[in-house]
C-alpha cells in the first residue's frame, strides 16, 4: 500500500467479492440442483436454494449409480480416478527423476539425443495423435485396464526438466564429498539427491495429481467397460442421453463429487501447488 485511498480500497474489496461470487456461482447452483428431486426441476422455476434431497440423491448416486445410462456407482468411478491420478503422478515423478539424474550426472553416448527425444513429447498432446495411439494400446491389449489408463501418460518432459534444473543448482562439492567418502552413484542418489528433492517432489505431485484426475479423452478412448470409468469422463455418459434431457440432479451430484478431491488437494496444499505451478512452467 503506497498511499491511503479508502475509497479505492473499498472498491478493491468489492471487486474481489464480486469476482469470487462470479467464480463460485456455477458450483453453488450445481450443488443446489444436486439436492432437488426430479419433479422440482420441471416446475418451470429456477431453484436457487438447496432442496431436501441431499442425502437421498448423493447416496443413490454414490452406491447405485445412474442406471439409465449404464453408469456404475460413482464410488467406483471415484476409486478409479484416484488410482489413475496417483499412478500417473507417482509414475511420472519416478521415471523423470531417474532420467534427469542420468542426463545431469553421467556422460554417455546419445545423451543429447535422448534429451531431445524427451523434449519432443511436449509437442505431442494426446489430442493430436488420437487414432494411432489408440491402435497401439489396442494391439498391446491394454484396453480396459489400469495399465492402459496410466502407463501411456507417464512420460513427462516437464517433470524431467524440473528435476534437471533443480540438480543444476546443487553444488558440485556435494558429489565430490560423496565420492571422497566412497559413495557410488546409487548411494549418492538415494542418500543425498532424493532428500534434497523432497519439496520439489511434493509440489510436482500436487500438479500431477490434478493432471491425472482431470484426464478426459484418454479414459474415454481406453475404456469401454463401465467398471473402468473415471468420474470426469463418466459424467459425459450421463450427459449424452439420446433424445432426452440429462437427469440433472444426478449429473450435478456427480460433478460436485468429481471436483471435491482435486479442489481439496489444491486448497490444503496451496503453497506447494503455487510453487509447483510456477516451476513446471519455467
Amino acid at each position: 500500500m503506497v498511499e491511503n485511498r479508502p475509497l479505492l480500497t473499498f472498491f478493491s474489496h468489492l471487486a474481489l467479492i464480486i469476482g469470487i461470487s462470479f467464480i463460485a456461482l456455477p458450483v453453488w447452483l450445481a450443488f443446489v440442483v444436486s439436492t432437488q428431486e426430479a419433479s422440482a426441476l420441471f416446475s418451470g422455476q429456477v431453484p436457487l436454494w438447496p432442496g431436501e434431497h441431499f442425502i437421498e440423491n448423493y447416496s443413490s448416486i454414490l452406491f447405485e449409480g445412474e442406471k439409465n445410462s449404464g453408469a456404475p456407482p460413482i464410488l467406483l468411478m471415484i476409486t478409479n480416478s484416484l488410482v489413475m491420478a496417483i499412478c500417473v503422478a507417482v509414475g511420472k515423478i519416478t521415471i523423470s527423476i531417474i532420467s534427469a539424474y542420468a542426463i545431469v550426472y553421467f556422460q554417455f553416448p546419445f545423451r543429447q539425443a535422448i534429451f531431445w527425444m524427451i523434449f519432443m513429447t511436449l509437442m505431442l498432446p494426446v489430442e493430436v495423435r488420437i487414432l494411432p495411439t489408440f491402435e497401439v494400446i489396442a494391439q498391446l491389449g491394454m484396453l480396459n485396464s489400469y495399465a492402459g489408463l496410466t502407463i501411456p501418460l507417464i512420460a513427462s518432459a516437464t517433470a524431467t526438466f524440473l528435476f534437471r534444473q533443480f540438480y543444476m543448482t546443487i553444488p558440485d562439492e556435494m558429489i565430490e564429498a560423496a565420492r571422497m567418502d566412497g559413495a557410488g552413484p546409487i548411494r549418492f542418489f538415494i542418500d543425498i539427491l532424493l532428500p534434497l528433492s523432497r519439496t520439489n517432489i511434493a509440489a510436482l505431485f500436487v500438479i500431477l495429481f490434478i493432471f491425472g484426475w482431470n484426464q478426459y479423452l484418454w479414459p474415454l478412448l481406453v475404456t469401454t467397460d463401465a467398471s473402468y470409468y473415471t468420474v470426469v469422463m463418466g459424467i459425459q455418459r450421463m450427459m449424452a442421453v439420446p433424445d432426452s434431457d440429462p437427469i440433472w440432479h444426478y449429473v450435478m451430484a456427480t460433478a460436485i463429487l468429481g471436483m471435491i478431491p482435486p479442489v481439496i488437494v489444491v486448497v490444503t496444499m496451496q503453497k506447494l501447488f503455487v510453487k509447483g505451478l510456477i516451476e513446471t512452467e519455467k
Binding site: I23, I210, W213, N214, Y216, V232, M233, I235, Q236, A255, G258, M259, P262, V263, V265, V266, F273, L277
Partner: peptide, 8 residues
C-alpha cells in the same frame, strides 16, 4: 477452479 476438470 484450477482443480476443476475442463469437462466438469
Amino acid at each position: 477452479p484450477y482443480a476443476v476438470a475442463p469437462a466438469l
